[in-house]
């Protein structure tokens, strides 16, 4: 027992002595050869451990970064998709607004009561050209009412139901519209052929018809108001021996891509 106490006392004394010596000049920390040797071993060990911990920390950061980036990537993809859809929707809206603005201008210029209608269907047969619009007799639409777009004449109402109407396009073989050439005031009739272009008939051979001439409604048949653009002359058809000359006219309205139209409920010239 004495030996143990003596050992403890000896160590305490040594520690106190070491402390006293060091405290007198704390800035001159002398570790001695044993301390230096221990530090020489301890240093690399600590460096190795620190490197290991740094590597683990780096790996962990990488792992968390990957997770974070994956989440962010998913979110950004969703954002891109959502924004893409929004852009498409806004573009669609802008185009619709432009079309409607043009229609509104046209309606203002035309006067009378005009009913805006959305094209909700189209005849898919290759012989007839009929579209279905979402306005009917409940809205005041009547058979043979003229139908126009911002660029010009579309056709006339063929059939009316309470909520929808069928519109016969000017390209339909059943369609005939009384017209005049805007420049020469030469009268004729535009008939549909079931194609993209319509045929202008009954033009006097004595008159010169120019390519690019604008064709407008004459208002003589009683169905269509005067002065609606119908199309432009794209070619002339002169047959030998015929009393009249004919021309092919490209409709002013792109009838294949109609989305909104105006039904001129009070636009007929016979009213």
């Amino acid at each position: 027992m004495r030996g143990r106490i003596a050992l403890a006392g000896l160590l305490l004394a040594a520690a106190l002595m070491l402390l006293t010596l060091q405290v007198r000049q704390p800035e001159r920390r002398a570790v001695g050869p044993v301390g230096a040797a221990l530090l020489a071993v301890l240093g690399p060990a600590q460096t190795g451990l620190a490197r290991v911990s740094d590597s683990v920390a780096r790996l962990w950061r990488l792992y968390t970064d990957i997770g974070r980036l994956r989440i962010e990537n998913t979110r950004l993809r969703e954002d891109v998709e959502r924004l893409g859809q929004e852009i498409a929707r806004l573009r669609e809206q802008a185009q619709a607004t432009q079309r409607l603005e043009r229609l509104l201008d046209f309606r203002t210029a035309t006067g009378g009561r005009a009913i805006g209608a959305r094209v909700i269907g189209r005849d898919t047969s290759q012989w007839f050209a009929v579209i279905l619009v979402d306005r009917g007799s409940r809205d005041g639409v009547r058979r043979n009412d003229p139908v126009v777009a911002a660029e010009g004449l579309v056709g006339r109402v063929l059939t009316v139901s309470p909520t929808t109407s069928q519109v016969l396009l000017i390209t339909d073989v059943r369609s005939a519209v009384g017209v005049v050439l805007q420049q020469s005031r030469e009268a004729g009739v535009v008939e549909g052929q079931g194609h993209a272009v319509v045929r202008l008939k009954y033009l006097s051979r004595a008159r010169d018809v120019t390519i690019g001439g604008v064709v407008i409604t004459s208002g003589l048949t009683g169905l269509f108001p005067r002065g609606l653009p119908v199309g432009t002359v794209v070619s002339l058809v002169r047959e030998q021996g015929a009393i009249y000359q004919e021309a092919l006219v490209a409709p002013a309205v792109n009838l294949d891509h109609l989305e909104e139209v105006l039904i001129l409920a009070e636009g007929r010239s016979d009213r």
Binding site: R4, L18, L19, V31, L38, L42, Q46
Partner: peptide, 26 residues
């Protein structure tokens, strides 16, 4: 026991002093 505690305590403290840079003995 006490001798083990004393010797290990002194060694542990000395190592800690060395490693931490405190004045030796604290």
């Amino acid at each position: 026991g006490l001798p083990t505690g004393a010797l290990l305590g002194a060694t542990a403290g000395y190592l800690r002093d060395l490693a931490s840079g405190t004045p030796l003995g604290v």
